[in-house]
């Protein structure tokens, strides 16, 4: 088993190289030089200053040399400095990453909290009115444009009712608040983004639980459990659900790229100070080192998520755990 995971870990290296190579390649598509953004904004910048800037960032070298230089620095965990404010990229990402993780982990938890009961209820009461209405509910979540739902939520709960703040992560007076008030403030700011994100991500998991449970319920051992007179909710929750949930663990790994990808749009709408918005702003400003950094970290999060899902899968399913022995 450890050998299997070591192999999986080792496999992450070529993947990561591939990912950074693609990101780097795409950046070469852009016409002109990213320093144009800096120099064109400033009329006083001379052609000479521009040359110096290009030299400083190594943009005069051929792209494969630039990539190799980047890779060498990356191996030392040095992501370089932002073109815009000259601050280390890793620090910029470090400041934003916790907010993104907070948002995505909260959404993921909420998705589980809502999707599991929906899936179970739909399966147990298959083809009932419950099943049908829940299916419609989940279907709408799957089809609804996030941007629109976010706008409607902002209009309704933020502007009309005035219950919740519509942007950012903290109030201006956050630093003067007590710890309890700070937590409440964070929760209030998180409420809309998390609700919207969770609603749009419900479908996959709840359908999976429903269909999985339906399949398990038909198995012999469920008939046995019923035959020996166990109460129905014990049969479902203990005997059937456990076996349904095993593959669900891997679904988390699949949900992760969607959530992280969603962050780029989500955080921009809600003016949320996370890594997604940092990445979006960097793309718009052609801040190459930050783009490379955010792309790499986002991909790394996805890879680690998938890896953890694999580990968890082996942990919950003894059949897989003992296979390697």
């Amino acid at each position: 088993m450890p050998a299997y995971f070591a192999k999986r870990l080792l496999f992450l290296v070529p993947l990561l190289v591939g990912i950074t190579l693609v990101t780097f390649g795409v950046m070469q598509l852009a016409p002109g030089k990213p320093t144009d953004m800096v120099t064109d904004m400033n009329v006083k910048a001379s052609a000479e200053a521009k040359e110096r800037l290009i030299k400083l960032y190594g943009l005069d070298k051929p792209w494969h040399v630039q990539y190799w230089d980047w890779l060498k620095r990356f191996a030392r965990l040095d992501f370089g400095r932002s073109f815009r404010d000259d601050r280390p990229v890793l620090r910029k990402i470090g400041e934003r990453l916790p907010a993104t993780l907070l948002l995505n982990v909260s959404s993921l938890l909420l998705i589980f909290l809502i999707a599991l009961p929906i899936g179970i209820l739909s399966a147990v009461k298959q083809d009932s009115l419950w099943d049908k209405s829940l299916t419609v509910f989940v279907f709408i979540g799957f089809s609804v444009p996030t941007i629109w739902l976010a706008l409607l939520a902002m209009i309704t709960f933020g502007l009309k009712l005035g219950w919740l703040p519509i942007s950012g992560l903290r109030s201006l007076t956050y630093d003067e608040m007590s710890l309890g008030a700070q937590c409440l403030d964070l929760a209030r700011h998180l409420a809309l983004p998390v609700l919207v994100s969770a609603f749009t991500g419900l479908a996959g998991l709840s359908r999976y639980v429903r269909n999985g449970l339906l399949e398990v319920i038909r198995q012999d051992y469920i008939r046995t459990a019923r035959a020996k007179g166990l109460p129905e909710n014990r049969v479902i929750l203990k005997h059937a659900l456990r076996n349904t949930l095993i593959p669900v663990v891997t679904l988390v790994g699949l949900l992760l790229p969607d959530l992280i990808g969603g962050s780029f749009i989500f955080e921009t709408i809600f003016a949320y100070p996370g890594m997604g918005r940092l990445g979006f702003d960097a793309i718009m400003a052609r801040d190459y080192p930050v783009i490379m950094g955010v792309g790499t970290i986002a991909a790394l999060l996805t890879l680690v998520g998938n890896f953890l899902a694999d580990v968890a899968y082996a942990y919950v399913d003894p059949r897989i755990r003992y296979q390697g022995k």
């Binding site: 990912i19 693609v22 950046m27 790229p257 990808g261 780029f264 990445g279 718009m284 991909a299 998938n306």
Partner: peptide, 23 residues
């Protein structure tokens, strides 16, 4: 399959945003 593995680790939207903003 390896190429697909690489492309699937990316949040697609990041790649899309990048290409469109640059072109």
């Amino acid at each position: 399959m390896r190429l697909i593995d690489v492309l699937l680790c990316f949040p697609a939207i990041f790649l899309i945003l990048m290409v469109i903003a640059f072109l």
